[in-house]
Amino acid sequence: MDATTAMYVAQGLHGLAYGMILFLVASGLTLIFGMMGILTLAHAAFFMLSAYFSYQVMQMTQNFWLALLIAPVVAGIVGVLCERFLIRRVHVMGHIGELILTVGISLVILDAVKAIWSTDSLYVDIPECLQGLVSIVGMEYPIYRLFIIGLALLVLIFMALILYKTRLGMIVRAAVSDADMVNALGINVPLVFMLVFGVGTWMAGVAGVAIAPILTVFPGLADQMGMDAYIIVVVGGFGSLSGAFLVSIIFGLLSSYGVQFVSQLAPILMFIFMAIVLVIKPVGIFGERE
């Protein structure tokens, strides 16, 4: 394979890996914002928090796998607590209340993180078995990025199975489409929603741990990713996992090829894409409802 093609393939894989990370964050947001209709701007803050937790676990145990296991769960628990004691109470006020509350939560998390871990970039090592390069059709590519793609796919399949093949998933989908009815059938809907919120936060946490070795851990981690995840949920259509998946991949590829061809304008491409989609179809690509 000649150098140019190899470069295209490498950029494509890079884009895919970034798209997959985006999808991990965005799919959690699809659950919370798209399906349950909770406008949370704290999602990216949990993502960042999980990255810091993973750093802390790595510091204590030197074990990446343990970090991958523990950090997202702890972040998920923090998310559940926020939902149970704060967000649930303002849900009746509609989106403005949630907006302000979650901005407040993310400000508090951000400042707490700065106070505990300082504002420096913290480095997390890639585990030994994932270091190094692998040769794909005559081209060297870092194993770790392939691992991210695999991890995201795994989480995606796991979630799709739960959502569409289990009784729990059925209850969740029913509760999303008509909470009152499901409640009347004797199912504890607030508990279901709390669980979904926790799972959504956990997924953002997984993405946070996965990205920590690549980008290093710093307080600004939440900004870029949070915005991108938001745009993906909106462009893909509220509550549509396949929409979020498609748009995540498109955004990943847009950003990696964009950097290659029009490096100056790469970040604008996403917003132009979003603006075009929303002007044509305000509910998003796969969106059916508001």
Partner: peptide, 15 residues
């Protein structure tokens, strides 16, 4: 910690 204080106030106000 300006952000912390503003964040807490926002939470309190909205709650």
């Amino acid at each position: 910690r300006v952000e912390l204080v503003i964040g807490l106030i926002l939470i309190l106000v909205i709650m």
